[in-house]
């Protein structure tokens, strides 16, 4: 049996869910490589941090190349880096559209592409993407955010087919609102309206998200791919 630690890449690892997942896997004895647009205060002998914009193709290629040279493999990729924006579409600037699609979609695309190249050599790997319940709920005020995450859902389902024969699974988790920076500016009544559309009417927790990720990356889940699991009973 292979007892080497797993190598896990987590984007957007400086704060929020990304930070929680990073600390969780470090505590589990895994090697974690993270990235964010700014410096992290996380220090751990099994943690390596890269400062980059996930939509910068050259920077992403360089990071994955460095990981390959350091650890020769990547077992798991968690495409967590994301950005949200809430606004009526009539008032949404083009710059917001570009920013959201760059981070949410292009970032997921670039990391998946570069990491899957490496995983394909070992004929093994797990990619987990992030969608949101805003996609199936078609939430007003979240047209651009939901559209960018819909793109992630399509990407997830198609990549699953394209890399399935390479031993790589690609799935997505669709969290409900969780207390993070992403929703801190959203008015309380809006969050309440959203929760009312869920089967289980509460905010999500980091543990809820972790639970779905754990299922996707479990070695026994090798037959699970192209799936999107929404939390809170949203479908």
């Amino acid at each position: 049996m292979n007892n080497r630690p797993r190598v896990i890449v987590i984007t957007g690892s400086r704060k929020g869910i990304g930070r929680f997942l990073t600390e969780h896997y470090l505590e589990s004895g895994d090697i974690v490589v993270g990235c964010s647009r700014s410096k992290t205060d996380l220090e751990h002998d099994k943690y390596t941090h890269f400062i980059l914009d996930v939509s910068d193709e050259i920077a992403v290629k360089r990071m994955v190349s460095s990981v390959r040279k350091l650890f020769s493999t990547i077992d798991i990729l968690i495409n967590n880096a994301g950005m949200a924006s809430m606004n009526h579409f009539l008032l949404t600037p083009k710059a917001t559209v570009e920013k959201l699609f760059s981070t949410n979609f292009t970032g997921t695309f670039l990391f998946s592409r570069e990491v899957a190249k490496l995983m394909s050599k070992k004929k093994k790997g797990k990619i987990v993407n992030f969608s949101t319940v805003a996609v199936p709920l078609n939430l007003e005020g979240e047209a651009v955010y939901a559209a960018s995450k819909s793109a992630v859902v399509s990407l997830t389902k198609i990549l699953a087919k394209e890399v399935g024969e390479m031993g790589i699974t690609v799935n997505a988790v669709g969290p409900t609102p969780v207390y993070t920076d992403l929703i801190k500016t959203v008015p309380k009544n809006k969050i309440g309206e959203l929760l009312n559309q869920q089967a289980i009417k509460r905010l999500g927790t980091f543990e809820d998200v972790l639970n779905v990720i754990e299922f996707f990356i479990n070695p026994k889940s090798e037959f699970i791919t192209g799936q999107v699991v929404y939390l809170g009973g949203v479908s």
């Binding site: 390959r68 190249k117 394909s120 050599k121 024969e165 390479m166």
Partner: peptide, 13 residues
């Protein structure tokens, strides 16, 4: 086609 994709990937590396 899938073998070509994997070969090009190896070549780039």
């Amino acid at each position: 086609s899938i073998q070509l994709v994997m070969f090009i990937t190896s070549l780039e590396e």
